[in-house]
């Protein structure tokens, strides 16, 4: 069983993901703040991280930088979901070594397809 971390400060989005995972029998740990999540990442080393990009304190990009710089963590699969979608943002996202990306609002089906690809 792969360990999934969800880092999302917005309750509407995290609740939706919780519901979608429940419906699809996927287990995940949810964090509403990035500093807290970062602590747990170091402790538990998840296999997959799905997170928002724009978060207070530590942004998604910074979390990603931290993970990719750590030898033990650098192989974690990362997917970001963001409300800002632009060609520039996409370029930035891939330059940070993020594995996949989904703009908000998303279709549940598309979201699950991406998650399933990670789970395989």
């Amino acid at each position: 069983m792969k360990r999934i971390f969800i880092i999302e400060d917005d309750p509407d989005v995290s609740l939706l993901i919780k519901d979608v995972f429940e419906a699809n029998a996927v287990e995940a740990v949810f964090f509403s703040s990035s500093p807290l999540a970062l602590k747990e990442i170091k402790k538990q080393r998840p296999d997959i991280i799905i997170m928002d990009l724009m978060m207070p304190n530590i942004s998604g990009f910074e979390v990603c930088q931290y993970i990719r710089a750590d030898l033990k963590l650098k192989d974690i699969l990362i997917m970001v979901i963001t409300g800002y979608d632009s060609p520039k943002m996409r370029k930035d996202i891939f330059s940070y070594g993020i594995d996949d990306y989904l703009p908000k609002p998303f279709d549940v089906k598309v979201f699950m397809e991406k998650v399933n690809r990670f789970l395989k």
Binding site: D12, V13, D19, V20, I81, G83, K104, P105, F106, V108
Partner: peptide
């Protein structure tokens, strides 16, 4: 405004789709 709306909108759209599937 668009960014702020995107989050709740994700909820509305996703929940509706989820419920439709169920």
């Amino acid at each position: 405004v668009a960014h702020e709306i995107n989050n709740p909108l994700t909820g509305v759209l996703g929940q509706a789709q989820l419920l439709l599937e169920k």
